[in-house]
Design a protein around this nucleic acid. Structure first.
Lengths: 258, 258
DNA sequence: GAGTGGTCTAGACCACTGA
DNA sequence: CAGTGGTCTAGACCACTCG
């Protein structure tokens, strides 16, 4: 179905534009794009097994090594997961190992007890200008606004304000959210076909306002870690804006630099 | 000079332990270890060109492809930098593109004007217990303690307290630091042969104490972003503990999740 | 043009999984 | 055992840099 890309390397034709712009793109990157389209189009869904390297090589009329390089790149991007002896699977937020993979909060005293969620609010609302800008919507477009608190060992630690584009999350309600067990991003995958693949965060220290202080059970003005996260699906399309306030008196935000 | 690793794959001998523990390690990872040792031992210094893939393949008696995979891994770890047509170089904190690569602070209004440094203090001091633990020293071991302020557009934004193991940084003085132009980690490389390759950070929101408030020109109690960074050289040896306080009223800490 | 890294292929064998 | 990904090799050609 996808147009087989032109051969290259071994003994054949020019790869791409020969005249104006060089714009050289290696074969394995073209394969990567084709695979991404299949993921985006839902040919293989989160958690599913994709065809073997040899099958894909036959489909795209390239060698196994070339397919392998494309899959390697997608695995690096965390879109695919390789399992030796079993095959290659579409990554998902449902796997035990990666649940809450975007949550970088770590308790000071090593072990993390259970996490509890409480949904405070969930309503449809017109997008304020700043939210609209972040989500690439028009101001006033319908959005879904969710407010919730995460607690660890019975103490509230995170207050999240979440904005979602209304069109992509039709039918999402407070009940749906509160009765769902498991990570939010997993619900997005299974119920709305929305898969978050990466996110940008902006961190600052702020003082707690009265409302946040009450919800997090801290003094007004107490220092809180503000975490503004913008999450993206395929094609770098932003699909969630999340403004979090973290009480870091017994937890810290972990980051690794390299 | 290094013992050539055993062959594998094509048509030859068992690779490694056959009896008790499987402990299988692919050839290219063994090559990676050998290359790391050469880096660590100073055979090739930061910024220098390492031998070509073909030369290394000959030295280690493996194919070019295997050396390539090892170098790819080291390039992913940011220990090496590949430049097509030129060769492969030892990564350094001196390169224009990666200067201050560990500093994630971004000004709200896009463009970053100049950065100014002011060294407030630099003294030899016995390691407090917590610092010693982080740096894998014994409490009371000699350390160097540096305090400095970073300013952007004339306004103080970052207050850093830096601890360095005394033995690795003999001869580092306040003058040396203040007269040096360029990133600190570059000075560490050129003057002390210490190359930082990765770091862990712990972030929290805290209230400014009197001293910090004065130095950062904020109100006492104002929310500040606390960034505790532990930096590592080769072999995961910690060689710097840095406690930073960031005024995030006009800057934010940027992070990318994937 | 020589030398470097980058891509592509083809084929062999190894390690792991599950029926 | 067959089938999957993982490693290794050998050789060809492409893209880039620099003298």
């Amino acid at each position: 179905m996808p147009a087989p890309p032109q051969a290259a390397g071994h003994a054949t034709a020019p790869v791409v534009a020969r005249d104006a712009a060089p714009a050289f793109s290696p074969l394995y990157q073209q394969i990567k794009v084709l695979l991404t389209h299949s993921l985006q189009g839902g040919e293989w869904r989160p958690g599913e097994l994709i065809p073997s390297e040899l099958e894909l090589a036959a489909r795209f009329k390239v060698s196994q090594g070339t397919v392998r390089k494309a899959i390697d790149a997608l695995a690096d991007d965390r879109l695919l997961v390789r399992r030796q002896g079993k095959g290659t699977f579409v990554a998902t937020h449902a796997e035990r190992e990666v649940r809450f993979r975007f949550l970088r909060l770590v308790p000071d005293n090593g072990k993390s007890g259970g996490m509890a969620r409480r949904f405070i609010d969930c309503r449809r609302q017109r997008a304020p200008a700043d939210v609209a800008r972040a989500l690439a919507l028009r101001a006033g477009d319908p959005t879904l606004q969710v407010r919730r608190v995460l607690s660890f060992e019975g103490r509230p630690v995170v207050l999240d304000d979440i904005w979602l584009p209304g069109h992509a999350f039709k039918g999402l309600t407070a009940e749906r959210l509160s009765e769902y067990r498991g990570p939010m991003y997993r619900l997005f995958e299974t119920e709305f076909g929305v898969r978050m693949i990466r996110a940008d965060e902006k961190l600052r220290a702020v003082g707690a306002d009265a409302e946040s202080a009450a919800l997090l059970e801290v003094e007004p003005g107490a220092p809180l870690l503000s975490v503004e996260r913008l999450s993206f699906t395929y094609g770098d399309r932003p699909l969630e804006l999340r403004r979090g306030l973290y009480d870091t008196s017994a937890h810290y935000y972990r980051n690794e630099l390299s």
